[in-house]
Design a protein around this nucleic acid. Structure first.
Lengths: 199, 199
DNA sequence: CATTATACATGATAGCAATCATATATACAA
DNA sequence: TTGTATATATGATTGCTATCATGTATAATG
């Protein structure tokens, strides 16, 4: 049965939201078109009215996964505390799309990769604004490095079946990010001076 | 036709090697049993003489993927230079199993996860021996943090379809790892003092 | 050398998933 | 209100993949 135009728009949003959650939870391949439609409260048949193919669904889903675009108002240290928390680790469905999907996207066709590249570029810019560093170059470097460390740590913490090791990865990576150099000075990578953040 | 026992042993090694390469290149799901057997120079039928299931093949493949167990004789900085090189980035098939497969392993059943956990633990121990730090605790922290950063960076560099961004991720993460704190002191995370490494 | 066990090939089987075909109910236009 | 367009449901279809069944050549064994 036909539904209203507003409902169609709403349905598309619901489908993309369901896909975003399911893909992050189970990956692209393990999620079927039927799964997505069912999660959206519809049946599989209507799918091709919305998308040309599953491939297109994947690309559009990634395009919609861009986290908030408003500037972060906290320092990187707070971001790391939340990012590297057990809660985030255990919540694939609502967590960081890069940690959940970057590996799979590597093996996806063009559109998915370019959409996810957009997500990544925005992430670096956002982080660059709050990262410590004397100039823009240093801040961008810190944004890239600490993003890689956080994403890598989350992936590893999710991978292992050893709960102690998983917690250790989160905790030690967080500490290592805040830590400074091996001499134990007071400098902190993530909480150092940053001209753009007021205390 | 039956083959010699030596040949059987050899065939199993060839199958596992082919699987290791194919899985890292394309992931577990995209590689079929037939693909693996063909790459090993056999046909699909014989597969179940070697493995109870594809799941078992995956677990045994991961078990065989443990990189060298001999201690690293270089410092972390050299390791990072090779790990974060374009050559490693482009060689999925022979590269780091953690970067290629950690995300997928998260969604695999128990055996695969525990085998990969073993790979990870050994990696931390190996890195801990050459990581900078005043004591074992600091060195382990550095091993975990820099592993996470390198693996995360490789995953992101492989994901993006923007060649400049990909190179930037590798280069900046390497520099960030060697860099010290935001104040620009002379300390270096990866090349700092390490009592166990002689120059 | 004769017998037996077995590794591998060929060829099902069964199930699942993407995609397509068609029917129907209903929003929308007139 | 009437007619038409279309969103969705139901139900193929097609192709792929894991797994199994069977035959056969040949290594092992005595």
């Amino acid at each position: 049965m036909r539904v209203s135009r507003k409902q169609v728009e709403e349905n598309k949003r619901i489908i993309l939201e369901a896909a975003g959650r399911l893909f992050r939870e189970r990956g692209f391949e393990a999620v079927t078109v039927t799964d997505v439609m069912k999660a959206a409260g519809l049946t599989h048949g209507g799918f091709y009215g919305y998308f040309k193919s599953k491939e297109e669904l994947i690309a559009q889903t990634i395009a919609g996964l861009q986290g908030g675009t408003e500037p972060l108002s906290v320092d990187l240290s707070s971001v790391a505390r939340r990012y590297l928390s057990p809660e985030h680790r255990d919540d694939y469905g609502h967590g960081c799309p890069l940690a959940a999907l970057a590996s799979e996207v590597s093996r996806q066709p063009g559109a998915a990769r370019s959409e996810m590249t957009g997500v990544l570029k925005r992430q670096f810019v956002r982080f660059g604004k709050i990262a410590p560093g004397a100039d823009d170059e240093e801040r961008r470097r810190a944004a890239i490095g600490s993003s890689a460390a956080m994403i890598g740590a989350l992936i590893l913490a999710r991978m292992t079946d050893d709960p102690d090791l998983s917690a250790e990865i989160l905790d030690e990576t967080r500490a290592w990010l805040s830590d400074s150099d091996p001499e134990g000075s007071a400098s902190h990578r993530l909480s150092g001076k940053n001209p753009r953040v007021e205390d």
